[in-house]
Computed example of a mutant assay.
Amino acid sequence: MSDAVGGPAAPGGRETDVAAPLARWLDRHVGPHGPWRSAPLAGGNSNETHLLRGGDGRRHVLRRPPRAALSSSAHGVAREFGLLTALYPTAVPVPRPIALCEDPAVAGAPFLVMEHVADALSVTDTVPPGWAGDPGALTRAADDLVDALAALHRLDPAAVGPAGFGRPDGFLGRQPGRWYAHWEQVACRPLPAMAPLARWLTDRLPGPAPTGFLHGDFHLDNCLFDADTPRLRAVIDWELATVGDPLLDVGLLLAFWGERPGAAVAMPAVQGVSRLPGAPPREHLLERYESAVGRPVGDLAYYRVLALYKLAAIVEGAYAQFRAGALDTPYAAALEHDVPALLDEAMACAGLAAGRR
């Protein structure tokens, strides 16, 4: 397989020369810093992320749709670039957007280039070595996480832009049916919990709430922290962002934070540090969020259930690709267990009967 970003595909993160058309484009739009080299940082069903290194040592990040995209709408880099451009001057910490290419002939797909956040890392289930010996590290990281989310949710999308971003009218009411229909399109096995969860979400729909930006996949793992201190540097992976009920972000963040129901939880590495000694409880994050935005969350259970239900519907598409042989990664293989486990957690949070996978 060839890769216009990095010449021949580079398994295991190996750095390779970028293809000539992309190198010329980078020289024109990013700066004459070549020769350019590239190494993959991430893949799967999120937009692919590549680290670009110029001949002078300067580093940038390139984002492009994945080869095995779950849907075209979820991976629009022009949309992501427009949002990053709007958010960068605000209090929301995001990487600086640099350039956008919508011509697929340059690198095989549209892509964006943004700054590389130096000396930063994503935190999953292990406390970074640079934080060792600091008993308050996880609390300060959690506080930064909540403060960034609250800063996003306090923004006025009409004032910040980009224009026409999202469809906020009726957003929450559309969610149960939208994700059930999405699951029906990608389904490769029975998931009996989907129907009762859809009914529960429809019947318990909260009343009208303030609308705002939502990240769409907000959790600790989609943030970059300073390697040596628990300071949030940037929120990343904005491809699912929209305008609607921002409490859906709160639901996902808190659904994966702290103790979770069940002996074998779904995606255990996600925010795994929140279950380590010294991590603040879910209530700490909730209280800090409510204080920052100036209003109560209300029916948190509803948003936790919706977040888990939505995530299960989305990532079942990746499992279907795995079953079909189109996606062969440990992440996709683990979805055989993880998707039913997500639905089990949603059922438990909703107070519905267990064992309906």
Rank of each mutant, 00 (worst) to 15 (best):
A148L: 06
F322Y: 15
I236K: 05
E316M: 03
A159I: 06
R357C: 08
P129Y: 00
G177D: 13
D56P: 04
Q185H: 14
H60N: 07
P32K: 15
P281C: 05
A118H: 12
A350G: 05
A109W: 04
H219Q: 11
P277Q: 09
Y309C: 00
L149Q: 10
L52D: 03
P296H: 11
S274L: 05
L41R: 01
S274C: 07
R63Y: 01
P206H: 11
T85Y: 09
D203W: 10
P35R: 13
P176F: 05
H215M: 14
L138K: 01
L240R: 00
G325V: 14
H153Q: 09
E102P: 07
G7I: 12
R24C: 08
H116I: 06
S274T: 14
S291C: 07
R356G: 12
D144V: 08
D217S: 07
A137W: 02
A269I: 04
P268Q: 00
R63K: 12
R260K: 10
P95M: 04
P277H: 10
G55M: 11
R167D: 15
L152P: 02
A346M: 10
A91S: 12
Y319T: 06
G317Y: 01
A350T: 04
G54R: 14
A4I: 08
T126Q: 07
T126H: 07
G355D: 03
A99W: 08
V61K: 01
R53C: 13
D249E: 03
V106S: 00
S122K: 03
R295V: 01
T211M: 14
A346V: 09
P135K: 02
P40R: 09
G54M: 13
V123Y: 02
L22D: 08
A91H: 08
G173Y: 02
M267C: 12
E115Y: 12
L149I: 09
R58K: 15
A118T: 11
L149S: 05
M347I: 01
R356I: 10
A187W: 00
I314A: 02
T211F: 11
Y180E: 13
P65K: 13
P208W: 12
G298S: 09
N222Y: 10
L41E: 05
L205Q: 04
R275P: 07
V243L: 10
V315T: 03
R67N: 13
